[in-house]
Design a protein around this nucleic acid. Structure first.
Length: 335
DNA sequence: AGTACTTCACTTTTACTCGG
DNA sequence: CCGAGTAAAAGTGAAGTACT
């Protein structure tokens, strides 16, 4: 017995009702007189009674818990985009009656790491999972499959193509960004983005290049942005070469570095050099000038991810749905 | 709206057997 | 009669069923 906590038995005794009635009150069963309900509720409040979720999980054979796995990065666990998505996911999970825990896991060592969310999976403390950006041959995908944990992939999915997946159409994003800058009067502009190994970046580059081909342009794609500082340096060298009038930056966070380099060169963002971001992070609206950015519909994506999980939890056989969202443009002042 | 009872999945305790 | 081995029982809290 748990000595420092009360059970529905205690509540029943103290309120002069039965366990069955307390259960009815807890589960909002309508067949309880208001007077009785109030009395039971008063005792619940007085004792500080909380339902024992371990017992409830035992009885219901589910944990009502979802784990979100983020890939471990070198110097940050989550990027700005993931950060905002996690907030949305959390909100959605809550409306569905699920608790959500965020776990940082590297694909290499998760099995030995008892602080990893996979620990919860192993021990039956989680019903489903959301996995950010698994890469090719990601063992975590295999692991979740083997343990028959329903999951949805968010972001990029290079693991396989038999998972439920929600993401952005990054080819369209690359194409749209190029088109937008071109139509705004820029002929010479560069796309700067992260690692070439990332599928997201490959797709964005591909879309960007397709637009170049269609319009007979020859603008560069520069990979290798690892952080804000490298965005800063990359911009410096672009400005020194006087080769561009606009910069298309993959990832709003990095724009901070881009802005600084532009301003230090005595130039003005939006007037002398156009800057276009991707993600539409909240911070973009507060940069000066406010950042124009391709929008990833984070709320819709999160909502759909949760829906896909709920579907999988309800269906017997595995449901696989793959959905790409097409970005829109939040036009502000930077182009 | 109460009574009595069952179920969930698993651990710990108890009760008992058997070889030496 | 000791210790090991094993089978059975008890216990955990919530929530539902069937009935009154």
């Amino acid at each position: 017995m748990n000595m420092n906590r009360f059970t529905i038995k205690d509540v029943a005794a103290k309120s002069g009702t039965s366990i069955r009635t307390v259960s009815r009150v807890l589960n909002s069963d309508p067949h309880v007189k208001k007077e009785t309900r109030d009395r039971v509720q008063a005792v619940i409040d007085e004792l500080g009674f909380k339902v024992n979720i371990a017992a409830r999980s035992l009885r219901d054979r589910k944990s009502n818990q979802i784990v979100v796995f983020a890939d471990r990065r070198k110097n940050a666990f989550l990027g700005g985009f993931h950060n905002e998505v996690v907030l949305e996911l959390h909100r959605e999970a809550k409306t569905q009656g699920y608790r959500m825990v965020v776990s940082v896991s590297s694909p290499e060592q998760f099995e030995e790491d008892e602080n990893d969310g996979f620990y919860l999976v192993q021990h039956g403390l989680c019903d489903a999972a959301i996995l950010f950006d698994p890469h090719e041959g990601d063992r975590r995908v295999q692991y979740l499959r083997e343990h028959r944990v329903p999951f949805v992939v968010l972001g990029q999915d290079k693991s396989s193509y038999q998972t439920s997946y929600v993401g952005l159409d990054n080819r369209a994003a690359g194409y749209m960004g190029a088109k937008y800058l071109h139509e705004k009067g820029h002929a010479a502009f560069a796309l700067i983005l992260g690692s070439e190994a990332s599928g997201v970046n490959q797709d964005r580059a591909e879309g960007f290049r397709r637009y170049q081909r269609e319009k007979g342009l020859d603008n560069q794609v520069l990979f290798g942005l690892t952080n804000i500082e490298s965005a800063y340096k990359k911009t410096q060298s672009l400005l020194e070469a006087k080769s561009v009038t606009a910069i298309f930056v993959s990832g709003d966070e990095r724009v901070v570095g881009v802005y600084r380099a532009i301003q230090e060169a005595g130039l003005q963002v939006g007037r002398d050099i156009g800057v276009l971001g991707v993600d539409d992070l909240e911070m973009g609206r507060f940069l000066l000038p406010a950042l124009t950015s391709l929008v990833q519909p984070k709320q819709e994506m999160s909502k759909l991810a949760l829906e896909l999980i709920m579907e999988q939890l309800q269906e017997e056989e595995r449901v696989v749905k793959r959905v790409l969202f097409v970005p829109t443009i939040a036009e502000r002042e930077s182009v």
